[in-house]
Structure formats: structure tokens, C-alpha cells
Design a protein around this nucleic acid. Structure first.
Lengths: 128, 128
DNA sequence: TAAGTTAATTACCTTTAGGTAAGGACATTG
DNA sequence: CAATGTCCTTACCTAAAGGTAATTAACTTA
């Protein structure tokens, strides 16, 4: 039994398939901003490997979240875009990103209130 | 550099620390429903190991998401509950679970429309 | 005092996720 | 026809996540 099938019936584990991967949210978020080609996604997500990018695109495709479209033009292009189902994930992703952003801001605010200079904290972080 | 520190500054990766673990959403969701003891969480989350449960509780504690409280009563009790910061995650988690639930329903609807009897599909799934 | 309960911790292991690097298929351009 | 660009696939490896099981410490109950 593969991990993808492990949690048939649990909403949490079901949703997790689409949101917990390192690059999944970033991929879907960018496809919401605009339908994109393979190469564009690779550029906009610095650090992602081609293996994982195709892997996730295939998974989203077979799950009905993303639609793959081969454009007959020159040079050859393959465009990926969200399906209607995929678009239902956008508000969820939006709330995740919004929370991440706010929580980061709060952390920064807390640090700048402390007596330790920010520069020192940043240095310490960089050393790790 | 640990994976927890890898993405300082990126809202997506920051939020992912709290939501992508196998049991994280389930733990927080239950703590929203009610403050709980270690043993209660273990019971309500069948399959979670004690190791992972303490691990996540420690992480949430040091992140300011969950508050640990030792109750001076007999028998000894340790209660975990969401902090104010932790409560800000609840709408996010709610939208994730809601989506998971709806998407599961859609999948079921699709399967029952197909010509293959559900029983056969279920058998095939069980075989994996 | 022995046994049980609660809340852990730890060492060890397996599984999964993700990264690296090589290469292939197909088309276009020079 | 060689070189280049796009969109992959594959084999192999490392690192991270998670599970198992033994153990502990503090306390309680019989």
C-alpha cells in the first residue's frame, strides 16, 4: 500500500497529499498567478529539481488539480494550469501563505523588541 | 543547518513547519476542540507514536503555538492547550480540513457515477 | 512494598522525500 | 548535420520523518 492511499477517508490526510510536499504549495500558488511552462516553473522556484517538478506535476495531473496542455507552436511548449478543482485549493493556500507571512512578521517584531541587536541575531542565524 | 531553519523569510516554508507533519494538523485541531492531556491526545490519534507526539508538542511549545501546563492534582496531569498565537492557526486548519472533506466527497460522487461497481473498486483498493 | 499510571526519553531501524547527475526524445536553428 | 532548447525519465544516493520498543522517573493505589 503506497502512502498516497494510506488515508482514504480522512480529510486531514487527504488534504495533506496536496499541501505537505516541500514544493507543492509553491507550484500551485504560481499556477494560480499564471499558467506556466515547465521551464518557467523551474526558474520561479529556485532549488527545485526537475525530478520533483515533473513528479508533482504528474501527481497533480492525475489528481485532477492541474491540467497539462501541449501547445502546438514553435518552439514546443507545454503549459500547466489549474483545473476548476485545482482552483478550489487557492483560498486554502492563500490562508496558509497569509498566516505564514503574518507569523513571520510577528517573529520579527518580537526580535526587534529584544535587547539583542538584530544584526547579531542575523549573524547567529547565518552561522547555523 | 536544520530543516526547521532552512527557509527563514519564506511564508510558505515558514507555515509548512507547522502544517506539513503527518500528525501536526490533527494535534492542533484536537487542541482547538479542547485542551488535552498527553494520554488523551494519544487515544484520540490512533497510530501516533509517543515519540512523535512529544516531539511535536515540544516543537509547538517552543514555537509559542501550544502551552504546556502541569496541573497539581492527583493523579498527575499535564495539559496542553493552544496559545493565542496557536489559535490564529485554527482558521487555516479549518479551511484545509474543509477542503479535504469536500474533495473526498467529490471523489466518492465521481466513483459512484462510473460503470464499475463500487464494491469492485473497493476490492482493488484493498489489494494495493 | 509491589504493581500500575502518566508522561516522557532514548537508541535503533525503516520508509519516504527529495537531490544529483546522466541521458533520451523530439524539435528548431545555424 | 551539428548544436541547442524543451520536457522529461531513470538510477542512485542522502537526509528527514516517522515507527518500535525498551527504559525512566515520579507518583498512586492495593
Amino acid at each position: 500500500m503506497s502512502s498516497k492511499d494510506l488515508y482514504i477517508g480522512c480529510p486531514v490526510q487527504h488534504a495533506r497529499q496536496f499541501l505537505s510536499g516541500k514544493w507543492q504549495i509553491a507550484i500551485l500558488w504560481h499556477l494560480k498567478i499564471q499558467p506556466s511552462r515547465f521551464i518557467e516553473l523551474r526558474k520561479i522556484l529556485p532549488g527545485i529539481s526537475e525530478k520533483v517538478l515533473t513528479q508533482e506535476l504528474r501527481f497533480f495531473e492525475t489528481s485532477g488539480i492541474v491540467q497539462r496542455e501541449v501547445l502546438t507552436c514553435t518552439p514546443q511548449k507545454v503549459e500547466y494550469k489549474l483545473t476548476l478543482q485545482g482552483q478550489t485549493l487557492i483560498p486554502v493556500i492563500q490562508s496558509i501563505i497569509q498566516w505564514g507571512y503574518s507569523h513571520l512578521q510577528e517573529e520579527k517584531a518580537k526580535r526587534s523588541m529584544s535587547s539583542t541587536p538584530i544584526s547579531v541575531i542575523d549573524e547567529l542565524e547565518a552561522m547555523q
